[in-house]
């Protein structure tokens, strides 16, 4: 009895060192394998499913406030908004008429060029359920996963332009990386003259770096960068960023160009997943 009591005041933890070694080897194994291959996606998926209730619980207050806001908007505001939208729709229809004929023409030309028709991309709406709190990692979690056909590398858009792409897709949720993440680069070209380059994120939501533009290149402030479609991940023609500063230093071989992303990288809640075929 006395011995037992003594045992209580000095609890010995059985097999602490061997347990430690076992777990360290296990986590080292995970560290090595997570970046190299796909073995651990099942583990990541199942944990992501397990914490999904927590994520939606954390997100609930903001969803409730938007729900209430939606329902208490005044009648006048709704009428006003409705009128504005109707006006906008008329304008859009007029633009669309031209677009339809242009699309026809474009398709005809493409057929002549024997190119694949890529204009009819379908999109699916998804909602951001959480963002990464580390300011250097611009990643987001969205509420669509493998179950909804989301796959790794799928393109994320908002109403204005390219947001990013899917990094991991879990069963119910997926993780996306924004074009402004410091580890992200996207192949682009200038819409005006087709000059090809890449746009690299630098951890700021309002700036992208455009490296490797030669000093004598034809580039102006206000030029629009669109996706070039090279590299195979992003389909061509979606707006990415607008040139906002060009610094030319004759001692350097390249211009220092920075561009402002067109998409509202840190303001969107809803985004669109581009439904392209996986093997396109």
């Amino acid at each position: 009895m006395v011995a037992k009591k003594d045992d209580h005041s000095r609890p010995r933890i059985p097999a602490l060192t061997s347990k430690f070694l076992f777990f360290v080897i296990l986590s080292a194994f995970m560290l090595i394998n997570d970046q190299r291959n796909d073995y651990l996606s099942l583990l990541r998926n199942s944990i992501a499913i397990a914490i999904y209730p927590l994520q939606s619980l954390v997100e609930a207050p903001s969803r409730i406030t938007t729900w209430i806001e939606k329902r208490v908007v005044s009648r006048e505001m709704l009428i006003e908004e409705n009128r504005n939208l109707q006006d906008q729709e008329k304008i859009n229809l007029i633009i669309l008429q031209r677009f339809a004929s242009l699309e026809q023409e474009n398709m005809r030309l493409r057929r002549i060029l024997d190119a694949v028709d890529r204009l009819n991309h379908e999109v699916e709406i998804a909602r951001i359920i959480s963002t990464n709190s580390n300011p250097y990692r611009h990643t987001i979690t969205i509420n669509k996963g493998i179950q909804d056909g989301v796959f790794e590398g799928q393109v994320l858009l908002d109403a204005d332009g390219v947001l990013g792409q899917i990094l991991h897709s879990n069963f119910l949720t997926s993780e996306g990386i924004l074009i402004s993440d410091a580890d992200h680069a996207i192949p682009v070209q200038i819409n005006r003259n087709g000059l090809r380059t890449i746009a690299v994120g630098n951890g700021s939501f309002s700036k992208l770096n455009i490296p490797y533009i030669p000093n004598n290149a034809d580039i102006e402030i206000g030029d629009l960068f669109v996706t070039s479609g090279f590299g195979g991940k992003f389909p061509s023609g979606y707006p990415v960023a607008e040139v906002d500063s060009i610094i030319s230093d004759p001692a350097e071989q390249f211009l220092t160009v920075s561009a402002t992303p067109i998409a509202q990288l840190n303001q969107v809640r809803e985004l669109m997943l581009l439904r392209t075929a996986k093997n396109e």
Partner: peptide
């Protein structure tokens, strides 16, 4: 998993 870090 929450922080989107490398597993481990």
């Amino acid at each position: 998993v929450i922080k989107g870090a490398i597993l481990g």
